[in-house]
Simulated assay, not measured.
Amino acid sequence: MGANVIMVASGKGGTGKSTVAVLLGAELAARGRRVLLVELDSGLRSVDYIAGVYGKTVYDVEDVLNGRCEAGKAVVESPVYRNLYVISAPYSGGHILPAALRVFVEKVGPVFDTIVLDTAAGMGVPFEAAMGVAHRALLVLTPDPVSIRDGRIVCDALEAGGCPEIRLIINKVPRTLANCGIQSLDECIDTVGAQLIGVVPFSTEIQKAGATGAPLAPAGRPRLALRAIAARLCGQYTPLVIR
C-alpha cells in the first residue's frame, strides 16, 4: 500500500505555506506516521531551515528526479522532529518534471506513510506536478482580500485538475480582524469555496519556528491548532473552532 500524498499550496507568497507544511508533517510524525516532506520550490528553499536540516543536505530533489542520486542519499531525518524526513529543493535553478515526480512517489510510497509535497506559491510547474500525484491538497491562505482572491483561483485550478480532495487552512489569524479588510473568516471559506480543515493563529512563536527551526511549545495555541489539523487529516473527529 502506498503513502498518502498531500500537497500544500498557496496562491500568493507570504502565507506561511512552507512553515505549515513542516509543522504539520511534524505533527503527523508525532502521531506515529513515517513522513517524507519534499520541497518543490526550486531556487527559494526554506524547508531545510524550518525542519532543522540546514547544512546536513548533500543532494536535493532535482538530483533525485534527474537520476543523479538514489532517493535514500537525498533524504535527511529532521533532528528536531522524529520520523520526519526531508528532501530539500535546490539552492538555485532546477526543474520539477511531473513524470519524474510520479515515478519517484511510486518508488518511495511503500517506505512512508505520508508524503507531503511543499509546492511553490502560485500555479507553476511544481504545482502542476504535485497535483498530478496528490490524494489531497491543503490550500494555505491568510485572512486578507488578496490572499482570499488568489486562493479562489488556486482552488478552481485544483478542481479543474481533478484533485480528489481540497481543504482550506487559514493561517496567521490575528485575535481581531479589524485591520484585515474582511468581515469574518466565513468570508474566506465562502469566497475560496473549499472546506475548512483548520485555523492557525498569528504567533511570534511560529515565526521563530519558521526562521530558526525551533519546535513549538507543547501546550501553546499554535501547537494545539496544528495538532488538531493533523488529527483531522488522520480521520479523527476534532471540533473545529473558527474563532
Rank of each mutant, 00 (worst) to 15 (best):
Q236D: 11
R31H: 07
G67V: 01
V241R: 14
V192E: 00
A74P: 07
R243V: 08
G151E: 02
G132P: 10
L65T: 01
A21V: 00
I182W: 06
N4I: 06
D156F: 04
D150W: 05
G132Y: 06
R167V: 00
G67S: 05
S42R: 09
G162D: 11
A74E: 03
D186C: 04
D48F: 07
A228P: 03
G43D: 05
S10N: 11
V125I: 12
G122Q: 05
P174M: 08
R227E: 11
V75P: 03
R152F: 05
A211S: 13
G124H: 01
R152M: 08
V146E: 14
R149E: 12
K12F: 05
G13W: 01
D60H: 10
I182K: 12
R221Q: 11
R34F: 02
T176V: 13
E27F: 03
R223K: 15
T238Y: 09
A231N: 10
A211Q: 11
I153A: 10
L36A: 15
A3N: 06
M1V: 15
V20T: 09
A89S: 14
L240S: 10
T176G: 14
A3D: 08
A209I: 00
G181Y: 07
C69N: 11
A129G: 11
N179F: 11
D156E: 15
V111R: 07
A214E: 14
R149F: 07
T191G: 06
I153R: 15
R34M: 03
G162W: 02
R34Y: 00
P164G: 02
N83L: 00
D113N: 04
I189Y: 02
T15V: 15
V61T: 02
V58Q: 14
S203N: 06
R221W: 01
L28H: 05
K107S: 14
L28K: 03
V154K: 03
E128Y: 11
V108L: 08
V154W: 00
V103M: 09
F127S: 05
E128C: 10
V53A: 12
A100V: 07
L196W: 01
P126N: 10
K208F: 07
V105T: 06
E70M: 08
V192T: 03
G151W: 01
G193W: 06
T176E: 14
D63Q: 05
V241Q: 14
L224V: 14
K107M: 12
T119E: 04
K208E: 11
A194F: 04
I50D: 02
R82K: 15
A228Q: 01
S147Y: 02
G151P: 03
D190N: 14
H95Q: 13
A209C: 10
V61L: 05
A225C: 07
L40V: 01
L240N: 05
C69A: 13
R33A: 12
V38E: 02
G122K: 03
M131I: 10
